[in-house]
């Protein structure tokens, strides 16, 4: 690791000013992803801006919903009474990710910025368009068991590794971003991007911006939420496929549904068509199977990950059955 410059900031305002000034600087919060990447020489920032002293660690209820500061820890949210009671999907997703130690380090903003676990991205001796634009995609014809089945192209078939993101996109979260001049708010669903022609970019955050807050609107899914994470061991492993499901029920009728997947695309993958299909239907296995089928439209395997074409609908079915308390 190069001996980078280090600066510890105390205020949000100064931080965004520093970001504007030092375009080669990276912010560090928990560090659990960034330091890992720096140790592997995947990234080598010459300046680190430590933002841990910024007052963005809050989790609080507001009129608009739940406000979560960008520096709130993942474990802090998962153990938070409001989150557990009103947004259990988020708590479940967070607890499905990483380890207790890492959840004690990882912030919300940092988790959103978490980079892919694609082996070709991590190994600097391999081609990777995400790490080194125009060097090729090692995974495309390589070992791609973990890789995307939705929205990928030949430039990049990597997936977003976060569990938290899957819950946040399902819950219609919004993100507040700030630069030295202005604040902007965007739908969480618009924050991450597909690889397209710029796989080196994971999201739409500008280099002079920082994430300051995540807002989750009130919802009626708390009684019927479930997060399924399918992986190669029973804990502490990245998802092959994960599914966040939230149902708002009136008797046996689905008034409203939220469905999203992880481990299947370059971004957390919301299943709008399946949600629309579910609306107004009765909860039962056949309905859920049909929703899973609809959700899989446009899916494409790349060889080793072909099994996800079967695993993903099975996981959607499982998540919906559990959310509806049918299994």
């Amino acid at each position: 690791m190069i001996n980078f410059d280090y600066i510890r900031m105390q205020s949000v305002k100064s931080t965004v000013k520093a970001l504007a000034k030092f375009t080669d600087a990276k912010m560090i919060a928990g560090g659990s992803n960034l330091i890992d990447l720096m140790k592997r020489n995947v990234t080598a920032p010459t300046k680190l801006i430590d933002i841990n002293l910024l007052p963005l660690k809050y989790i609080e209820q507001s009129k608009e919903g739940l406000r979560i500061g960008a520096l709130a820890l993942n474990s802090q949210a998962a153990d938070h009474e409001i989150v557990k009671n009103k947004f259990p999907l988020l708590a479940m997703a967070i607890n499905a990710g990483a380890s207790p130690q890492l959840r004690n380090m990882a912030s919300f903003g940092g988790n959103m910025m978490q980079r892919t676990r694609c082996t070709y991205f991590y190994d600097t001796s391999m081609p990777c368009n995400k790490r080194e634009p125009n060097s090729g995609c090692g995974a495309l014809n390589g070992i791609n068991r973990m890789h995307a089945i939705f929205g990928a192209n030949d430039n990049c078939i990597a997936v977003n590794p976060s569990d938290m993101n899957v819950a946040l996109i399902a819950l219609d979260a919004q993100v507040v971003l700030l630069n030295a001049k202005k604040e902007r708010k965007m739908a969480f669903a618009d924050f991450h991007k597909l690889a397209e022609d710029t796989p080196n970019l994971d999201n739409h955050l500008q280099s002079n911006e920082m994430i300051v807050e995540i807002l989750i609107p009130e919802n009626n899914f708390s009684k019927n939420s479930y997060y399924v994470k399918v992986r190669d061991r029973n804990s502490y492993a990245f998802a092959l496929v994960s599914v966040a499901a939230g149902l708002e029920l009136e008797g046996k009728t689905i008034k409203n549904a939220r469905l999203a997947m992880g481990g299947v695309a370059h971004k957390p993958w919301r299943l709008y068509d399946a949600e629309n299909y579910l609306q107004g239907k009765e909860i039962n296995t056949e309905t859920f199977k049909e929703a899973a089928k609809i959700a899989m439209k446009g899916a494409k395997g790349y060889g080793h990950n072909d099994f996800k074409l079967d695993l993903a609908p099975a996981s959607i079915l499982e998540a919906l059955m559990k959310a509806a308390h049918l299994s």
């Binding site: 410059d5 280090y6 600066i7 105390q10 030092f22 010459t46």
Partner: peptide
């Protein structure tokens, strides 16, 4: 690098590469 910026930025520590 960060050196001069520090005082004004209320930053606490630095390392000038």
């Amino acid at each position: 690098g960060f050196l001069k910026a520090t005082t004004a930025l209320t930053a606490i520590a630095l390392s000038p590469t």
